[in-house]
Design a binder for these strands. Structure first.
Lengths: 191, 191, 191, 191
DNA sequence: CATGAATGAGCTTTCATTCAT
DNA sequence: CATGAATGAAAGCTCATTCAT
């Protein structure tokens, strides 16, 4: 039927990205064959290669894409006028939010069973985000609200702590979230 | 294995274990072919299979072996008569020690790019160690020296924080170690 | 497959089946490596696994496929109105026909150097064919044309006898065929 | 203890031969690894190679050894003074005897899942035995007791028939033995 | 003579990638 | 653009054979 154009299904590329992220997260990068990925994504195997030259590039592109999205989400509506404590806890809660709303995504970004396959660009993707964070921490230190010390070390310890709680699969409850955020704040706050 | 002296001059099996741990840590589990592992270990491919029925079993046996050795090391010379703070900081320092003396081992045990391949026994291997830790934390809580809250959550946050610092590859200096341990203590101590 | 016309011009799958049957028959199942089989079949090694999940399944599928085709061939044009003797000799001749026209196939189906690898389905594949044969023998016994006794034993002795003649590699001549069939008839006929 | 000579266990070579025959028969030639064979035989792996230069040679030597033993057994106490019928039936019964007394041996010698590995000598091993059989048949034909025709073909059909009955695993009963032998006699006798 | 730890060639199987349609 | 059948390099693993003890 020539006069009826095929309605293109909602972006094959997006299907691939979403499926790949989920499978890489669930089963691991190496344990996810491209043909299987294609099948579940509902596309032909060859189609993946139209968008991504190789499996490794696919991984890295997805990683960077989601990493940026998550960073954007964490910083969104970041009200600069609030107190350092409020701002810090806001950041923590946003971070935890993701692991609640999309555990696969969080696990994909943080657990990184594919770590040896990340390229230089991917390893550097956090840099801009870190600048904002470092500025926030330095400002807090100047205001005498945050402990002194290397901001990157401080920030790493916070995210490391939260991620580990996620990995041990304690189910997040209102109480455990509060508990976790409070401990983080306790760690980094002056006094 | 620099900090573990009890391993005698390397037999074939020990060569395999040591080499496998290093390669799995460096390149990842899937990216390490058995023949390559065999070659670097200085044994024939078939020899590995005399000692380990499969690659996955090799991984799990190594994991459990080192996990236990490290736990033993962390708890060694744990002086029960010292203050809670001293004991806590001792544990942290022992933990960091390993990552300094044997970064490959620490990375192997903590980064776990092979996570999906760990079996039930491996996932349960920490249980005894955790009992000691949980007791230590509960005692500290009773003494009013440690914050209240789930001991497993608290312990996870500490190790998660330290591991993340290691992963960002900040070189450990006397200052950064002290800084890190102090922050951990700050997080968990009452007042 | 000379005597079976219904197989169309060889697709990849059919190439694999035909080649495998010939090689398994000639050299034995274990002595036929998959890459060699693939090469002779003119396909890539992986292609075999698109159609058959494993070497053992390949064997069993081929076995059942040909077993059924041969049984069909043996029973084809089986004229029920003829005398028991005519019918019996017709069956024997059809059976011998195959070993003349396609010795590899006959050897594959009857010599079974791969016997330990046949699965339950394969071992049961003859059942329907045997029902027809058993009925034929029982009818012959009722008509007092065939000797009494277990029809399966009787039938087994006939095919066993013929197969053994084939295996000793006496070249079939018109005389030896007649001789063989006559002896079989002599064995099973009443008087 | 130098003055006490080790009592040699009852012939390691015989242990190997017996075990190999059983395993080759049960599981197939290729499916029987030499180390497993050695273990079950209660000898070292290397010991097998003191007696047999290779697995294939082991197979062929065992084959010939038992083939000759069986032939000897079949012909033993063969009373030349009896009638052709008696003598023929005696041979058949001796043959069946073996499959009853030692099914593994019979299966090893007759089913031959290892057929492609038999060497020329093994294929020729029956020759002397066949000479006796051929003479017996020719004599019987001269006496007008046995049907005319190639003696080798006739003999093959008899053994083929009996072997097939064994393979279908109909349990031998006095009745089925008699039935089987009678049919064989019916086939070959000049009535 | 006997051993069995060690070997590595060679097996079955998988899967990232290609390309004719 | 999209496909998926086809590929073959390379993986995990086995086992006939050797040789130091």
């Amino acid at each position: 039927m020539k006069f009826l154009k095929e309605i293109p299904s909602p972006s094959k590329k997006e299907q691939i990205i979403l499926t790949a992220m989920n499978l890489f997260s669930e089963q691991g990068f190496d344990a996810t064959p491209m043909p299987k990925l294609a099948e579940i994504a509902g596309v032909g195997t060859g189609t993946i290669y139209r968008y991504f030259p190789s499996k490794e590039i696919l991984l890295n592109e997805i990683y960077r894409l989601y990493k940026l999205k998550v960073e954007e989400y964490v910083l969104a509506d970041f009200d600069k006028n609030k107190s350092v404590e409020k701002k810090f806890k806001y950041l923590c809660n946003r971070w935890i939010d993701i692991s609640i709303q999309d555990p696969k995504l969080f696990s994909f970004l943080e657990l990184q069973n594919y770590f040896p396959y990340l390229d230089e660009d991917s390893l550097r993707i956090e840099e801009n985000f870190m600048k904002v964070i470092v500025k926030f921490i330095k400002d807090g230190q100047k205001e005498n609200k945050l402990v002194n010390g290397d901001p990157i070390l401080i920030f790493g310890m916070v995210t490391g702590a939260i991620t580990k709680v996620f990995k041990t699969k304690l189910i997040w409850t209102e109480i455990s979230i509060k508990s976790c955020v409070d401990l983080c704040w306790k760690m980094v706050s002056k006094n």
